[in-house]
């Protein structure tokens, strides 16, 4: 589908390789033959107008679409060379390695501590209370939330502010030590200051994780990502280095979108 002359869908040393990925919901096709590579230890942003399929694509990578009735995913997605759309692969195992942060902060109605401890507990990643305490602390520290909540770990996570809740969700995702973190518009429900903190965090996290972020904010894509893919009407129109996409787009649809002519 993609013209390799104008696109660099493939890269050397990819973390996730997607080929001919198509998705349809109850017979209505939402994504058409997507080819895209996600690089290791970098941030890839997916931009495009609403309804273009970028969230759908994101949810393919940890098979969250399995939860939706009538959703059919075809093609091939491999993480570290392992095909994940295979029925042999357990989606539960996959999601441990490919974590996800949602548009709206969704802390569990449990304490801050239990929110973080939830993943390590169900996967049996820790032995004993001390180790769990340590995982909780490092996760919160990496999410930049430790100083703010260390004195109230046993209070409900739902009592935090929106920005803190989102960082809690990020801490929760990294507590199970995934390889890839998918973020579905993680800042759309946050104010500019909380957004800035989350963006700093994303920049920090890319050293350890491969991150894919869906965003409606072109500035955010430009600020945090190294590679950008522009989705439109269920296809990838253009993909490349973020700098190139934003300064010198090859496709006029991309140019139209990033200069604000539509979207």
């Amino acid at each position: 589908m993609l013209d390799s002359e104008t696109n660099s869908a493939t890269i050397a040393d990819p973390k996730v390789v997607c080929r001919d990925v198509s998705v349809s919901y109850s017979g209505k096709q939402a994504l058409f033959d997507i080819d895209l590579d996600i690089g290791s230890h970098q941030v890839t942003s997916l931009i495009g107008p609403s309804g273009c399929g970028k969230s759908t694509f994101l949810r393919c990578m940890n098979r969250m679409n399995d939860v939706i009735d009538g959703c059919v995913v075809t093609g091939s997605i491999s993480v570290d060379g392992v095909e994940i759309l295979d029925d042999e692969i357990d989606a539960v195992q996959l999601r441990r390695r490919v974590g996800m942060v949602f548009q709206k902060p969704n802390p569990f109605p449990k304490s801050i501590y239990d929110n973080i401890a939830y993943g390590p507990r169900i996967h049996g990643l820790v032995r004993g209370k001390d180790e769990l305490d340590e995982v909780v602390q490092t996760s919160l520290e990496r999410a930049g939330l430790w100083e703010e909540v260390k004195d109230r770990l046993l209070q409900p996570g739902t009592g935090l502010s929106g920005g803190q809740q989102q960082r809690l969700c990020i801490a929760r995702a990294i507590a199970v030590r995934p390889d890839v973190i998918l973020m579905d518009e993680p800042c759309s429900a946050l104010d500019p200051i909380a957004t800035a903190r989350v963006e700093e965090l994303i920049d920090e996290l890319k050293r350890s994780y491969s991150i894919v972020i869906v965003t409606h904010s072109m500035q955010q894509a430009a600020r945090v990502s190294q590679r950008t893919a522009f989705f439109h009407l269920g296809i990838v129109v253009e993909v490349g280095e973020t700098e190139q996409i934003f300064t010198n787009p090859r496709d006029e649809r991309t140019q139209g979108y990033i200069t604000g002519r539509y979207g």
Binding site: V67, V92, R95, F102, F108, V176
Partner: peptide
């Protein structure tokens, strides 16, 4: 549903999600 999604995204099974979330 976002709570269930949050739990699934951490690799919890359906029964773990029901019991614990």
């Amino acid at each position: 549903q976002t709570l269930r999604d949050g739990s699934y995204a951490l690799g919890a099974t359906q029964s773990e999600t029901i019991r614990q979330v």
